[in-house]
């Protein structure tokens, strides 16, 4: 497979990581916590979508909407139950609570849904582009024929739709501008009359909705099992930090960078080293942070 094909794989991976990373980074910037249980929200969304699509046979887009609603509901219920009561204790107790909550959720999902992987029933059309010539440099083919599946196109299109919607929300609506204001300065936000708890709740719902969608897209690409989301949490976290923690636009950039680097390192590292491909993503993270500690799009690191 040529470079072009692997970049397509990377863009697809980057797309569902980006959707989740936006939710993750909004929680970081506005609620001021790192939510390590966030991967489990993806798993929940993927299962909700799966059972919705199979129990009552409904079309996949409707099942995805059900998963988004379910993700949003789960997120706000969990936040109200576990995070809001200890909101004043600061980032570290919140982080530790989220790690514990993640373990509990993961095992609860395994108990209820079982260990086996489940597959969404999708019809896939594959579009092939074989006419593109090879352009070999050493062992690497810089062009080469490639294919895209209809599923991959859906993943990318969903991501682009989410980006436009999030941009609109954050720049055009009162609640979105209030979210950004709160990320800047919570005390000043209160002085201006912003109900900070209401905004926090909105962020939780939004992050849950995004996790639900990301989980369904991830599951369509691969499968859904109890660790579907957990296996992505480090990539999501890296994308968010890489982009400048708290910045949704940075998180998008970070996600595509991570997705493409993962795909390329899987494809082009010598076969004995392919297990290191996720390490490569983190090597990039470390290098970027050494050069620009606030991340790609970050202007400041929020005070803890």
């Amino acid at each position: 497979m040529g470079l072009l094909q692997n970049i397509i794989f990377g863009v697809v991976t980057g797309s569902y990581i980006a959707i989740a990373a936006i939710g993750f980074t909004l929680i970081y910037g506005i609620v001021n916590m790192i939510n390590f249980a966030y991967g489990e929200y993806l798993t929940l969304g993927a299962f909700i979508g799966f059972f919705a699509a199979t129990t009552f046979p409904i079309p996949l887009p409707v099942a995805a909407l059900v998963a988004m609603a379910g993700g949003g509901l789960a997120s706000i219920v969990l936040a109200r139950g576990f995070f809001t009561p200890i909101n004043q204790t600061g980032p570290v107790p919140l982080l530790l609570t989220s790690i514990g909550l993640g373990i509990a959720l993961r095992n609860a999902i395994r108990l209820v849904a079982g260990r086996e992987a489940r597959y969404y029933d999708t019809e896939t059309t594959t579009f092939r582009f074989d006419a593109i010539p090879d352009l070999s440099v050493g062992s690497v083919d810089l062009l080469g024929g490639f294919f895209v599946t209809s599923e991959q196109l859906i993943v990318v299109a969903s991501a682009v739709t989410v980006f436009v919607a999030i941009h609109g929300l954050l720049t055009r609506t009162d609640v979105g501008i209030a979210m950004r204001a709160m990320g800047d300065d919570e005390n000043l936000a209160r002085v201006r009359g912003i109900d900070t708890q209401l905004i926090r709740d909105s962020v939780w719902v939004l992050a849950g909705v995004l996790a639900g969608l990301s989980g369904v897209l991830l599951a369509i690409q691969t499968n859904v099992n109890a660790t579907t989301g957990f296996s992505q949490i480090l990539q999501i976290l890296s994308a968010a930090i890489l982009g400048g923690a708290g910045s949704p636009y940075g998180a998008i950039l970070g996600a595509y960078l991570i997705g493409i680097v993962l795909a390329l390192s899987t494809a082009f590292l010598p076969s004995g080293m392919s297990g290191l491909s996720s390490a490569v993503a983190f090597a990039i993270l470390i290098i970027v942070l050494l050069v620009k500690p606030s991340g790609i799009a970050g202007t400041e690191v929020r005070e803890a």
Partner: peptide
């Protein structure tokens, strides 16, 4: 307030909009 009296990542227009948030 004496310091930190604007939202630095919001535009001038958005700051005024938040001024009238209520």
């Amino acid at each position: 307030p004496q310091s930190n009296n604007i939202f630095p990542t919001l535009s001038v227009e958005e700051n005024l909009r938040i001024g009238a948030y209520v």
